[in-house]
Write a protein that binds this DNA or RNA. Structure first.
Length: 584
RNA sequence: GAUCCAGUAGCUCAGUAGGUAGAGCACAUCCCUUUUAAGGAUGGGGUCCUGGGUUCGAAUCCCAGCUGGAUCACCA
């Protein structure tokens, strides 16, 4: 045991169950069994294939090899049943002592399987498939190989007739240790399979149209394409600040200038803003730009893609979400921004100037501040009074020009832009434009953003001179679209929180290891032997500063007492030794 | 950022007139020897989130903090 733990403190820190598993590990090695063998295990079938294709009549699957995690063990003397879980599902294993160990030596069953194998261990088995008296398809195991020993006990989740017992539900546990969540909550694994299916479904559609999947920079000198606060970083050899992208729009449009007629990217974007049920600092957006199209064409295309995703995933356009069913059957509802506001507030904002809009906000009890321009005021009204009504897919079109600096002016009203958002479940799911390709207009819009920025809007866009230069060479008319993939996944998989569709949602760092290791060096620098550092921390001397305020006599007493009480077996300390530590 | 709720065994959770910390599953030992979340018996396992305070005595009451969740604000 000592060889496994270079440090006895750590061993004592382990729970009883963890200590027992480490002892089992030791005993396995003594029996000549490598708990982490290198050789491949030749799996020839999955549990799902057996479950769906086995029939007693055809007597198939008579030499199967499956591998997975041991999820349950029921020992009945010389016979045992166990549950094996692989990626696709679970199957029952049947062990019979004399079949597993045909000779005189029954160690393989009595010791290895019954005693040294734990729930959570990864094993491979060979055998034949049969049906038990209870009617359960099972594998009669003739050979078993330990593939990877598990040292931490898994939470035990059991299920009977669709009722789950003791399910792991603590969100913090689930998000921080997603690997455990995935093992014990198969539904969670399924959500992420669906997420990939959604992305594949969209990609198939785009590729079938001949659009090109591309990659553009994540590190950008100017974070353009969206109004959002960026993360900032620094490049050492160039010695310049770089920003993590908030959007990839401006780069994809440069590619239209370059002559590609349809480009798309599934992009991770980063925004240094609040976190909640629908916002994570990094998130995935699909952006696509198609030359010679306009936003009206794009609306039809969005309907086509979302209907396809729903059908590919569910086989129907009707998708259950929370208490309702969202129907992605086309066509979707279409309203203009002004029309929607008029419908839900009775106020017609058409043609209003900034003061009139501020009045309207007062009238509607909407809080505003001095930094807000026309665009932001209208958006406030929409957000406060309209958005929450829009549960089923609804296009909101023709946004005011002030809030859409990258969008072409409306062909029949210069105060509006050719822009739409698709609102589903009261949240923006898609955003699309007839892209602005007039370089002079674009320059003026950027300058307007600059004025907003000077007014105090910290999300206003920067001027990207290279982008303007690209537009001056000429960009074809085009329509562009962004879809929030995380939110789309939430809706399509009926998940209430963005954290449920991200494998590793952003969390506050766990306190512990990292800081502890850093501090350990400080203790050692004081001349304290490594083996005493953990003892000090256990006694509450969590910083070296705290330590220096303590008298050497008391300290050596405390340390020696702890050593004795916990039978650590460390060599006792003299007060003189301890005094040396505290000297500077 | 504001308000509310939660934090007790590996997991799910009980536990207040303040008075020695509990259950189920898991784990260990023994018995049983073809089970279906669960065969039987016995047993081990706890920083009751952390730090203060009140008290003879705090898981429990008070204050502060940490972590998470919910709602709101912010997030075109």
């Amino acid at each position: 045991m000592q060889q496994i733990y270079n440090d006895k403190m750590n061993y004592n820190d382990l729970s009883e169950q963890e200590q027992i598993r480490r002892q089992s590990l030791d005993e396995l090695r003594k029996l000549g069994i490598d708990p982490y063998p290198a050789a491949m295990f030749p799996v020839n079938v999955t549990t799902k294939e057996i479950a769906s294709d086995f029939s007693a009549e055809s007597n198939n699957f008579q030499d199967v090899a499956v591998a997975g995690r041991l999820m349950g063990k029921r020992i009945m003397g010389s016979a045992s049943f166990a549950e094996l879980q692989d990626e696709k599902g679970r199957i029952q294993l049947y062990f019979k002592r004399d079949d597993l160990c045909p000779g005189d030596d029954k160690t393989g069953y009595n010791t290895v399987f019954k005693k040294l194998l734990d729930i959570g261990d990864i094993i491979g088995v060979r055998g034949f498939v049969f049906v038990t008296q209870m009617g359960e398809i099972s594998i009669h195991v003739k050979e078993m190989t330990l593939l990877s020993k598990s040292l931490k006990p898994l939470p035990i989740v059991k299920e009977k007739d669709g009722t789950v017992y003791d399910a792991v539900t603590d969100p913090e546990f689930r998000y921080r240790q997603r690997y455990v969540d995935l093992v014990v909550n198969p539904v969670v694994r399924d959500v992420f399979i669906k997420r990939t299916k959604i992305i594949n479904s969209l990609r198939e559609l785009y590729n079938s149209r001949g659009y090109l999947e591309v990659e553009t920079p994540v590190l950008q000198p100017i974070p353009g394409g969206a109004a959002a606060r960026p993360f900032i970083t620094h490049h050492n050899s160039l010695d310049i600040p770089l920003y993590l992208r908030v959007a990839n729009e401006l780069y994809l449009k440069r590619l239209l200038v370059g002559g590609y007629e349809g480009v798309y990217e599934f992009a991770k974007d980063f925004r240094n803003e609040g976190m909640d049920r629908t916002h994570n600092p990094e998130f995935t957006v699909m952006e696509i730009y198609i030359a010679y199209k306009d936003y009206l064409w794009m609306m039809d295309f969005v309907e086509e893609m979302l209907e396809k995703v729903a059908l590919d995933l569910h086989g129907t356009t009707k998708v259950p979400y929370a208490d309702t069913i969202i129907d992605f059957k086309r066509p979707f509802n279409r309203m203009t921004m002004a029309g929607a506001i008029k419908q839900y507030t009775g106020i017609d904002i058409t043609g209003m100037n900034e003061d009139q809009l501020k009045n309207a906000c007062h009238q509607l009890n909407i809080e505003i501040d001095e930094t807000m321009g026309k665009g932001k005021l209208i958006d406030e009204i929409f957000g406060a009074k309209v958005e929450h009504h829009l549960v089923h897919p609804t296009f909101i079109m023709d946004y005011p020009v002030e809030m859409s600096p990258l969008c072409k002016k409306h062909r029949s009203d210069p105060n509006l832009t050719e822009r739409f958002e698709l609102i589903v479940n009261s949240k923006e799911l898609c955003n699309a434009y007839s892209e602005l390709n007039d370089p002079i207009d674009q320059r003026e819009r950027f300058q307007e953003q600059l004025r907003l920025s000077e007014k105090g809007d910290d999300e206003a866009m920067f001027i990207d001179q290279d982008f303007l230069r690209a537009l001056e060479y000429g960009m074809p008319q085009a329509s562009g679209l962004g879809i929030g993939i995380d939110r789309l996944t939430m809706i399509m998989t009926n998940q209430p929180s963005i954290q449920d569709v991200l494998f590793f949602p952003q969390m506050k760092p766990e306190k512990g290891q990292a800081t502890r290791d850093e501090a350990q060096e400080k203790y050692i620098a004081m001349g304290i032997p490594v083996e005493w550092v953990d003892v000090l921390k256990k006694l509450g001397y969590t910083s070296t500063d705290k330590l220096k305020e303590t008298k050497a006599g008391k300290l050596s007493n405390d340390l020696n007492g702890f050593n004795k009480k916990n039978k650590l077996g460390l060599k006792g300390l003299s007060p003189q030794e301890v005094e040396e530590w505290l000297k500077e």
